[in-house]
């Protein structure tokens, strides 16, 4: 199997770990995204072929879920929580500040592929609102003043 994301057969290795039952579609999409950071056109068609499904079915399932991305993500994924508690405690200014510092809107990636910014429904760390997460590091009680330090963009 050859496509642009799979020079070393990494995609084949992932697929080989799963049976071809339809119920494996989401776990496979998750594993592929965990490996490559996003779902390329090539990986969607390889997954479809492996599961004996049409590409449109695989694409249809993957676009339903917010987790899946179809363009590469930056090295550092900045996720800002838009949950109720964060909203009440003023997260919108944190998001504005982050957006301003990175020069991108939520859902975008910087041109150097360094940062991606996302807003997320809720992280469930509401007691520490407002919350932002850099890769896997959760930062609580974030104020607009602290964003710069958290991003490491001093």
């Amino acid at each position: 199997m050859s496509n642009e994301t799979d020079a070393n057969g990494r995609l084949d290795d992932i697929l080989a770990g799963y049976g071809i039952e339809r119920s494996n579609i989401i776990p496979i999409l998750q594993a592929v995204q965990a490996e490559f950071g996003y779902l390329s056109v090539g990986s969607i068609s390889a997954i479809a072929k492996y599961l004996r499904l049409s590409e449109s079915v695989v694409y249809g399932v993957s676009t339903f879920y917010a987790q899946f991305k179809f363009v590469p993500v930056g090295k550092r994924l900045i996720r800002v929580c838009r949950g109720t508690a964060c909203h009440v405690r003023g997260v919108s200014r944190v998001l504005d500040e982050t957006s301003k510092l990175l020069g991108i809107d939520p859902g975008e990636t910087t041109a150097d592929l360094e940062y991606s910014l996302e807003s997320i429904a809720c992280f469930g760390s509401c007691a520490l609102a407002p919350v932002m997460v850099v890769n896997e590091n959760v930062h609580g009680k974030v104020t607009p003043d602290r964003v710069k330090k958290i991003l490491g963009k001093d």
Binding site: T84, R89, A127, L128
Partner: peptide, 12 residues
């Protein structure tokens, strides 16, 4: 309950 928002003692 997940007690959060504008309250002093936030928590579970």
């Amino acid at each position: 309950f997940a007690l959060a928002g504008k309250v002093n003692c936030t928590g579970l």
